[in-house]
Measured scan of single mutants.
Amino acid sequence: MDPFVVLVLCLSCLLLLSIWRQSSGRGKLPPGPTPLPVIGNILQIDIKDVSKSLTNLSKIYGPVFTLYFGLERMVVLHGYEVVKEALIDLGEEFSGRGHFPLAERANRGFGIVFSNGKRWKEIRRFSLMTLRNFGMGKRSIEDRVQEEARCLVEELRKTKASPCDPTFILGCAPCNVICSIIFQKRFDYKDQQFLNLMEKLNENIRIVSTPWIQICNNFPTIIDYFPGTHNKLLKNLAFMESDILEKVKEHQESMDINNPRDFIDCFLIKMEKEKQNQQSEFTIENLVITAADLLGAGTETTSTTLRYALLLLLKHPEVTAKVQEEIERVIGRNRSPCMQDRGHMPYTDAVVHEVQRYIDLIPTSLPHAVTCDVKFRNYLIPKGTTILTSLTSVLHDNKEFPNPEMFDPRHFLDEGGNFKKSNYFMPFSAGKRICVGEGLARMELFLFLTFILQNFNLKSLIDPKDLDTTPVVNGFASVPPFYQLCFIPV
């Protein structure tokens, strides 16, 4: 058959498939802009700032609406009420993970971030239990974070109060905490193996944040037939998995079943207990991918939040002064901060919360999916439909947070200066898919920041009023603009 005829037939089939998918069930789905064949609503979305586009569309179609990214149908949730109703009140029905062709290629359905069903539930339950087990290797997770915080302070001392970009050092600290939990080992910041790991993690975040990856996920045929950065992403992930597998083999040879040292040991012990169960989800494949998931999810998000926190503290020296006064009063100079201190430091706690609220790190979270046909607000959402959640619409709700575009710790303080919780605080998402490392991340943010401010004054290279804190939105995360500062020993 003539190649031209084959091409026309293929394009015609794709067009018909697109029209059929977009028209099927439209009477039951939430409203939304009319999609174009094949490309859907992509032309109506700013790929570099999806969150802003969703906010604009919500003003037209309401808090629940339908979009098509290519052939992929998505239902968008915008605003606290619908997000709570879906992710919390109907948590089980909305607990699936959205379709990610690239991740599915890399992870093969294993791990904790992109798995679904029984596998996801069992691996998540085990990971939560293990991360909360403060007795691994007779050292609590808090001990590990405190140790890394001391190392971080010593690295900052080496800058000798000269101007520096904190990106690298602030990236090393949370990565080392995860390494300590998974591998029972922290690395020197100049260790070549550690630097290679950091390089792969950072490069992957840069790649994932590009519009090209959005295109690959919406048109998965590209993955096999086109060159691009997605190939580098898959190569980096394969490198990390190979490295983790080597460490798993080392653990198998040296493990003491009665004295687990780290996450890998705990997983291997669980595998041993379930070795007679042919349906067990505790396999080497799941261990390797879960460890890679924890490394990827637990490094860049925390380091970016820390980097943004220091920029905001530079911009608002009056806030920094209040935090340091609270540190001096509650902790002093002669001991290290600990998590028990947080309950006695409402202002510092409010500042950490406000940093996370203000920066809105992951504006749309990772997409969910419905696990069955769901009736939601008089609409029928078919099983498997991807759910896109606007966390921006919750964290920047102007009824809950007056002047949401302003950095103001009073958003989390009552009139008496006591810490005030808010149900709208969802930087880790909400419901059954809430970030498994939430507790660890909150511990790291509090301890790293208090250790830094206990030991250093922060000095800006320019007038604080002239510092730009506008986030650089890159399609996946909101990151701070480049800046330098000086760490002046107190």
Score class of each variant (00 low, 15 high):
2 D>T: 14
6 V>D: 00
10 C>F: 13
10 C>Y: 05
21 R>M: 12
41 N>K: 00
46 D>V: 04
47 I>F: 15
48 K>R: 14
52 K>I: 05
63 P>L: 01
70 G>L: 04
75 V>G: 00
81 E>M: 07
93 E>W: 11
94 F>Y: 04
96 G>F: 07
99 H>G: 09
103 A>I: 13
105 R>G: 04
105 R>Y: 07
107 N>P: 04
107 N>K: 14
115 S>D: 03
117 G>A: 08
117 G>T: 05
135 G>Q: 15
135 G>E: 15
139 R>H: 14
141 I>N: 10
149 A>C: 09
157 R>D: 10
159 T>D: 01
161 A>G: 14
186 R>M: 03
189 Y>I: 07
195 L>R: 15
203 E>R: 05
205 I>T: 14
206 R>D: 09
209 S>V: 09
212 W>H: 08
217 N>A: 11
218 N>A: 15
223 I>Y: 10
224 D>I: 04
226 F>I: 15
233 L>A: 07
240 M>L: 15
246 E>P: 06
247 K>A: 12
256 D>T: 07
265 D>P: 00
272 E>C: 12
272 E>P: 04
274 E>N: 11
297 A>I: 04
298 G>C: 08
299 T>P: 04
304 T>E: 10
308 Y>V: 04
310 L>R: 01
311 L>T: 04
317 P>G: 08
319 V>L: 04
325 E>R: 14
330 V>M: 08
340 Q>H: 13
341 D>A: 05
342 R>K: 13
344 H>G: 12
363 P>W: 02
366 L>Q: 03
367 P>I: 04
367 P>A: 06
369 A>M: 14
375 K>H: 13
376 F>K: 00
376 F>V: 07
379 Y>I: 02
384 G>D: 08
389 T>P: 12
392 T>H: 15
394 V>N: 03
396 H>G: 06
398 N>H: 15
414 D>F: 06
418 N>K: 14
420 K>S: 08
423 N>C: 15
425 F>E: 02
427 P>G: 04
430 A>H: 06
434 I>W: 06
437 G>H: 02
441 A>R: 00
450 T>E: 03
458 L>W: 03
471 P>T: 07
473 V>N: 15
477 A>Q: 15
488 I>L: 13
